[in-house]
Computed example of a mutant assay.
Amino acid sequence: MRANFRLQRLFVESDIVSGGALPVSDGQFNYLHNVLRLEDGAELLAFNGRDGEWLVRLTYPSRKKILLEPVEQTRPQPDPCDLHYLFAPLKVGRLDYLVQKAVEMGAGVLQPVMTQHVQGKIGSIDRLRANATEAAEQCGILAIPEVREPVRLIDLLEAWDRNRRIIYCDEGAETNNPMSALDGIKEKNLALLIGPEGGFSAEEQTRLRGLPFVTAIPLGPRILRADTAAVAAMAVIQATIGDWA
Rank of each mutant, 00 (worst) to 15 (best):
A3S: 13
N4V: 04
F5W: 00
L7R: 11
L10Y: 05
V17Q: 09
G19V: 10
G20S: 08
P23N: 15
Q28K: 09
N30Q: 12
Y31N: 03
L32T: 04
H33K: 15
N34V: 00
N34P: 00
G41Q: 04
G41N: 00
L44M: 12
L45P: 07
L45Q: 09
A46Y: 09
N48F: 05
W54K: 02
L55C: 09
Y60W: 01
P61L: 05
K64L: 05
K64V: 00
K64Y: 06
I66Y: 11
L68E: 02
P70H: 14
E72P: 08
E72C: 09
R75C: 02
D82F: 01
H84Y: 15
Y85V: 13
P89C: 07
L90S: 14
L90A: 07
L95S: 08
L95Q: 08
D96Y: 04
D96A: 11
Y97C: 04
K101C: 04
L110W: 12
P112T: 05
T115R: 04
V118H: 08
K121C: 05
I122W: 14
I125D: 01
D126E: 15
L128V: 14
L128W: 04
R129L: 12
A132R: 04
E134Q: 14
E137Q: 05
C139I: 10
G140M: 13
I144N: 04
R152E: 07
E158H: 12
E158C: 06
A159N: 14
A159G: 07
D161N: 09
D161Y: 02
R162Q: 12
R162C: 00
R162W: 01
N163R: 15
E171H: 10
G172N: 08
G172K: 06
G172V: 03
G172Y: 04
N176E: 03
P178F: 01
L182C: 12
G184A: 13
G184P: 02
G184F: 07
G184T: 13
K186Y: 08
E187C: 03
K188R: 15
L193K: 10
L193M: 15
E197I: 13
G198Q: 04
S201I: 09
L208C: 09
R209W: 02
P212G: 07
F213N: 14
A216R: 09
L219D: 11
A226Y: 02
D227G: 00
T228Y: 08
A229N: 01
A230S: 14
A230N: 03
V231A: 11
M234H: 10
M234Q: 15
M234S: 13
I237E: 01
A239V: 02
T240V: 12
I241F: 11
A245W: 10
